[in-house]
Simulated scan of single mutants.
Amino acid sequence: MARFKRSEVQPHEDYGFFGPGSVVWKVWSYPTAPTVGFQRASVVEELDPPLVAAVHGTQGIYQRARTRYDRTLRYFAMVAFAGSREVSKAADILVKVHSKAIGELPYGGGTYDANDPASQLWIQLTGWHSILYAYEKYGPGKLTAREEKEYWEACALAAELQTCSPDDVPRTRDGIRAYFAQMRPRLSASPIARQAMNHLLRTELVLPPVPLWAKPVSLAVAKAQRIATIATMPRWMREMAGIRQSRLLDLLIVPVMKVSFALAHLNPEVELRLLGLLSPSTVPVVAPIKLGIPPRKEEVLTPAEARARYGYAKPAEAHLEFRARQSARVFGDGKAPSDQGLIESQDVLGPLA
């Protein structure tokens, strides 16, 4: 397992936007979140034509699969657990990162922009829904009605860190279902979507290198997670994407994953070591919560309060001049977009290589 030292864990500045006792900490701190939940979100997202065009255009998931997984998971974890200043800075720099993901749609005409509010809403809802779905299927089970209401209110709060509007976030399970039903006719399993989905289901690509003797175990773990993730996807979605898996496997994987996750969750330090295998950069974000290390200030802020305190603009209004220059480079001059946002993001989201 990855190296981990309790003595090196640093406290967060504050509780961020949720804090102890919140349903977000309850759901997102369970080991289903960084594994099946996160993988499901990444795979399902690719059915949205503008989003998969952005993913395909940057080629990040293919050229640096492990670091892309690591950086993206770190950001998701920061939103749930990190201090308000750190999260606000990450949300701000992410707008500059996404400014690189613009271009012409490869199918059907038009353009794509990763900062587009509709794409950001799709990412937000597929992410939060997938994390909850995996928790319910392979973890402790369904939330209470009160907890679920709090969960979707928290999802709307977290949407303030994206370029989408929190007003567009449904606040109930029925509302989430209605959103996905509305999106279904717009989804497409294009060749690049199928390529991306199958690539993202290859868990072995994000696992660290292991000695020869350990490879069978590593491959078995990767295979189990792939089966578990596919088992969470509805049949119509699998058929659209050409992903096949028997109903028997769907059933058999449930007790295997339930027991595995429950055992991992018994010991926080073991859980952190296992997390370090998937995403080393996420461990410092989650460790203070797992180990019960209080922040320097025991307070919870809202994103609006954090922006006012630290001087950040709303994501939808951030870096407009820089985004305009990126657009001019791509659509006006026919050049590749600048990597400036990616380069600047390394201090916040982790190294690119």
Rank of each mutant, 00 (worst) to 15 (best):
M1I: 13
E8W: 10
P11R: 02
H12N: 14
D14P: 04
W25L: 04
K26H: 10
T32E: 04
T32G: 05
Q39W: 03
Q39A: 02
P49M: 15
L51F: 08
A53P: 02
G60N: 06
G60V: 04
I61R: 04
Y62L: 09
Y69F: 12
Y69P: 04
A77D: 11
E86M: 07
K89R: 15
A91Y: 00
K100H: 11
G103Y: 07
E104K: 14
D113E: 14
Q120F: 02
W122Q: 00
L125N: 07
W128M: 10
E136W: 06
T144W: 13
A145N: 01
E147G: 05
K149P: 01
Y151T: 04
W152K: 05
W152L: 04
C155R: 02
A158C: 11
A159K: 01
L161M: 06
Q162D: 09
C164D: 02
S165D: 13
P166H: 09
D168Q: 14
F180C: 08
A181C: 11
L187I: 11
L187T: 06
S188E: 02
S188N: 03
Q195E: 12
M197W: 06
N198D: 09
T203A: 08
T203W: 04
E204A: 08
L207E: 09
P208I: 06
S218C: 00
S218M: 00
I227Q: 01
E239I: 11
G242T: 14
I243C: 15
R244P: 05
L249Q: 11
L249M: 12
P255N: 14
K258V: 10
V259F: 07
V270I: 13
L274Q: 10
L275K: 07
L277E: 13
L278A: 11
L278Y: 10
I289P: 03
P295W: 01
R296F: 00
T302D: 13
Y310T: 06
Y310S: 06
A313S: 13
R325L: 08
R325K: 11
R325T: 07
A328Q: 14
D333M: 14
D339Y: 12
G341W: 08
I343R: 14
V348K: 05
P351G: 09
